[in-house]
């Protein structure tokens, strides 16, 4: 229940905010909510598998946020803004 509420809040933040920093923070919240669901399920049956899955999610979030923040720096250097709509065009 708590995980669902947090996930929905993160999704709202992801959809409404146009700042890249806020987008990354919302993604963090959503990943955290997914990890909370895993840990709660593992605690419900008394198994360690849920915590192992949380560790995997943790490592994935760390890698994702480092790459994402490097992209934010590139974006700021290129467009002098952190608005996500400025980077809506791709160069193939």
């Amino acid at each position: 229940m708590l995980a669902a509420i947090l996930f929905v809040l993160g999704l709202i933040g992801l959809l409404t905010r146009r700042n890249v920093i806020f987008t990354l923070m919302s993604i963090e919240v959503m990943l955290n909510a997914a990890g909370l669901a895993f840990v709660a399920a593992g605690a419900r049956w008394g198994q360690a598998d849920g915590q192992v899955m949380f560790l995997f999610i943790l490592a994935m979030a760390a890698a994702e946020v480092s790459v994402g923040l490097a992209l934010v720096l590139r974006l700021h250097r290129l467009y002098k803004s952190v608005n996500i709509d400025d980077a809506s065009t791709l160069k193939g």
Binding site: L55, F56, A59, M60, A62, A63, E64, S66, V67, L69, A70, L71, L73, R74
Partner: peptide, 17 residues
């Protein structure tokens, strides 16, 4: 697999930054 993912994250962040 997670260790390989972290390595890819390191290389990607280094390349982008």
């Amino acid at each position: 697999l997670v260790s390989m993912l972290l390595l890819a994250g390191i290389v990607g962040a280094y390349h982008l930054g």
